[in-house]
Design a protein around this nucleic acid. Structure first.
Lengths: 158, 158
DNA sequence: ATAAACTTGTTGCAAATGCAACGATTTCTG
DNA sequence: CAGAAATCGTTGCATTTGCAACAAGTTTAT
């Protein structure tokens, strides 16, 4: 990927405003949304955000290895591994060595984990609807912009 | 309990898609942008992101207390305090007790710090222009949406 | 067939983080 | 004005994080 600063040079504004800097604004929005959600996850389900991401991914994919999750939800594999260990300890997921490739670990939700997600996912869907309502007509551009950013910077980073 | 691996794993809520969940997408975009920038800050200036935020805020405000920075850039005060200690150790900022209120600490850039920002800020401005170019017509809605999110969740969180 | 190279998941370790507690100061209240 | 309450910045502590190293397993190349 090209150097982030490698664009045609122009006279730079002497006035730089942090509060208008998009990377800062995105980080701030992410932090505020995460904190709001994390409070609910933790209070109602005892889940950290890494825990939550693993659970949600498993509820979608049905079965996944640590590596699958690492790639799909963009978390360090050690973070995934530790989340999986916690969740297994709580009986929310099951871990098994894969038959086809014994390096891999198959992760699946247990019945208890499935039950938790049946309760949790509607709340997440509700939150999503709330955000879309809050953003109104700006949501389309917002979502499109996120897609662009995620695609543009995906390979250049981990 | 049933063996989780006996059952062909089924997604519990086909309606919910993590990759479409806005809080997740914002967090991912923030992470990718932060990693891209953090590489540059660290490689070229030896600054972590907390360091960078403190430096940028000081270059704007000229003088600020830990409390000011905590509020403006939404970082824990201990994080600000430690960043300030690091930066003072490197001679990039100066710390002194405030005259008017002796609980406060006045933070200012040193000449060395100012020189670093004179080199750094044009790169940041360049990066901002690059993002705006990448997002094209979606940038307006994107930026408006960020404003709404930041405002809506600002008080409900920290 | 076999050694080298690579992949996967876990763990040790150092650094970063969040939170609470604290001393020092200032402001509030009666 | 005095005592209580609040604010500010730092620090101790436990937890979390990222990175590198590692064992176990698989693929590649000769």
């Amino acid at each position: 990927m090209t150097d982030p600063f490698d664009i045609p040079a122009e006279p730079s504004d002497p006035q730089f405003d942090l509060s208008r800097f998009s990377p800062y604004r995105v980080a701030l929005a992410a932090q505020l949304l995460s904190e709001t959600l994390a409070r609910v996850y933790r209070a109602r389900f005892g889940l950290s955000i890494p825990d939550w991401r693993v659970m949600v991914h498993l509820s979608q994919s049905g079965r996944a290895s640590v590596r699958d999750i690492e790639a799909k939800v963009v978390m360090e594999k050690s973070k995934v591994s530790r989340a999986a260990a916690r969740l297994e300890g709580r009986g929310l997921i099951a871990k098994r060595q894969s038959e086809s490739d014994k390096r891999l670990v198959d992760l699946t939700l247990t019945d208890a984990g499935q039950a938790m997600m049946d309760e949790l996912l509607p709340l997440a869907a509700q939150f999503q609807r709330r955000i879309e309502a809050q953003l109104g007509t700006d949501f389309a551009g917002f979502d499109a912009a996120l897609s662009r950013i995620i695609e543009a910077y995906h390979d250049s980073s981990l």
